[in-house]
Design a protein around this nucleic acid. Structure first.
Length: 216
DNA sequence: GCGATGATGATCT
DNA sequence: GATCATCATCGCT
């Protein structure tokens, strides 16, 4: 039996390239999540590149820590982190081992398994909102820190895999500043998305938190 | 449609 | 103790 070309898993060599090549190339690919609940497939529509130690916006900028250790490992593995006390975000490690680059998967269109995704995303009014935003994507796909370090190139039945999918024509790929990234990392136009796709999340500029007023 | 704000905890200084 | 690669809700111009 032969798989159709778009069902072929992306090999590790796909991720072992400069992150600014890999990130736009991930658009239109099929992210497969095999969870105990079942299988969910999603077409990636929005990503952001984080360029390791040279990138002030990257978790790896200040060197290796227990949290970001996976980013310093081999490409093709999942880096999952927990943030704002509530949410998970999913990245794929890119570039050669030690470079600590990665791509944040920010949004996508659920292709199969929408019923399970809806159960985890009760506030979503439309299916286009199921994975519109990095934490929403992680919630819809049942991504948690137990998946941190998972090899996404270990075959189509592993917990996480990326298939070849159907990339958009190059004229539909847009790029701009990264969402929620401030400081010296803000100017880099390293967010990539598919133009006109209704599952792409709205852009939000970095907003420094205001301190709570002092008690009287 | 938009801006402000609270939720909630791990991580790092 | 501040920050955080966010989200949902509320109130309004």
């Amino acid at each position: 039996m032969s798989e159709s070309p778009d069902r072929t898993p992306l090999p590790r060599s796909f991720f072992d390239r400069p992150v600014l090549e890999v990130a736009p190339d991930l658009l239109g690919r099929t992210l497969v999540r095999n969870s105990p609940d079942g299988r969910i497939e999603l077409r990636l529509t929005e990503v952001e590149a984080y360029a390791g130690a040279i990138d002030p916006g990257s978790h790896a900028f200040r060197g290796r820590t227990a949290r970001n250790a996976v980013m310093f490992g081999p490409p093709g593995h999942a880096y999952v982190y927990f943030t704002y006390g509530m949410w998970h975000c999913l990245n794929l490690v890119c570039g050669p081992e030690g470079e600590a680059s990665g791509v944040l998967l920010r949004a996508g269109e659920i292709l199969t398994g929408a019923e399970q995704a809806r159960k985890r995303r009760l506030s979503a009014r439309y299916d286009s909102e199921l994975a519109k935003g990095p934490a929403r994507l992680a919630t819809a796909l049942d991504i948690a820190r137990t998946l941190n370090g998972t090899d996404a190139c270990a075959g189509p039945d592993s917990p996480l895999t990326v298939l070849t999918g159907t990339p958009p024509t190059p004229d539909l790929v847009r790029n701009g500043p990264r969402t929620g990234v401030g400081g010296d990392g803000a100017p880099h136009p390293w967010r990539f998305w598919i133009d006109g796709d209704h599952t792409v999340s709205p852009y939000r500029a970095h907003a420094p938190r205001k301190r709570r007023p002092e008690s009287p």
